[in-house]
Computed example of a mutant assay.
Amino acid sequence: MSEECTHDCGSCGQDCGDRTQPQSLLAEANPESHVKKVIGVVSGKGGVGKSLVTSLLASAMQKKGYRAAILDADITGPSIPRMFGVSYKVVGNENGLIPAEAANGTKIMSVNLLLPNETDPVVWRGPIIAGTVKQFWTEVCWGDVDYMFVDMPPGTGDVPLTVFQSLPVDGIVVVTSPQELVGMIVEKAVKMAGMTNTPVLGLVENMAYFECPDCHQKHKIFGDSHIDELAAKHGIEATAQLPINPALAAASDQGKIATVDTADWLDSLTAFIEARHSVKQ
């Protein structure tokens, strides 16, 4: 039965083909790209630190000796280049666009690296934005990459759906914050991953606490953590917490996010990703 077929193929006597298997929507990567694992970083709402977590995860993997890359799929709110101190414009050759490379070796592709000015707004409709994200996969010469992290825009709209359907996503990391309302919105992102058969690898709670630099007591500015109960409810094995830390904000603003030591915060999560999706031969 073909896609154009409108009748009962079992009784028509014609060979209409087999529609028992769903058609794959995966886009073919650029011939110059050899990406081993693709990890999406998602959130149900904005303002929870998704781009921060993406940058820290990529930097952590780079420090471990892996070749990391970030595909900035947040087209209307790109912040990845600024966090890594990358401002030059990307160029292309006969094979496609060449991604930028941060000082620590992380490869980056973002719409801000294509715009005349990084403050120029991207006023595009959904299908064009989704198409641009797909082009970042098909038309960028990523080269050899062990772990690619995809910084998605918040919510469950066109772009996250395009990423889930068009890229070979091995799993996602969900970013949240302690507020109970955010926990409810996290469930939307987790359920969307379930609808697309995408494993949830970890849950990161940003702004979980503030540690006093003098007495080292931890203060829960935004209330008690819900990360354990959320993880248990959805069967998520790996969790991590990030504090409210002025050093993180300063490093982001100064383009030095790769210099932040995240061992105390993200080691368990990156180790889980390594074990679940090993790139070692």
Rank of each mutant, 00 (worst) to 15 (best):
W142G: 03
A240V: 13
V175N: 11
L242P: 06
W124M: 04
V53L: 08
V111R: 05
A232P: 00
D228H: 11
K191W: 00
T239K: 14
D264N: 14
A193G: 14
P243N: 07
K134L: 09
A130C: 12
S59K: 10
S24H: 09
A58P: 13
A231Y: 04
A271F: 08
G10L: 06
Y147H: 06
T176N: 10
V150T: 02
I244V: 14
S79C: 08
V173Y: 07
S24N: 09
L266M: 05
W124L: 06
I128C: 01
V174H: 05
I80T: 04
V163R: 12
I108M: 02
G92A: 02
N112W: 01
N104S: 08
M152Y: 01
F210A: 05
V41Y: 01
D120Q: 05
K64M: 14
G47C: 08
G143D: 02
P153V: 08
S268E: 12
P121I: 10
A58E: 11
G49W: 07
T20Q: 07
V123A: 09
V35S: 03
N117F: 00
D228W: 01
L269G: 04
F136I: 12
V173N: 06
I172Q: 05
A249Y: 04
L114A: 03
M184H: 13
G65V: 13
L114V: 05
A250P: 05
V173F: 05
A130E: 06
Q254D: 13
L57K: 12
F272Q: 13
Q62V: 13
D158C: 10
V174N: 03
G183K: 12
V145M: 02
E180F: 11
V169I: 15
T162A: 12
P160W: 10
L71Y: 03
A247L: 14
L113P: 05
F164W: 07
N104A: 00
P116Y: 00
P160S: 11
W265Y: 15
L203V: 07
I227W: 03
D224C: 02
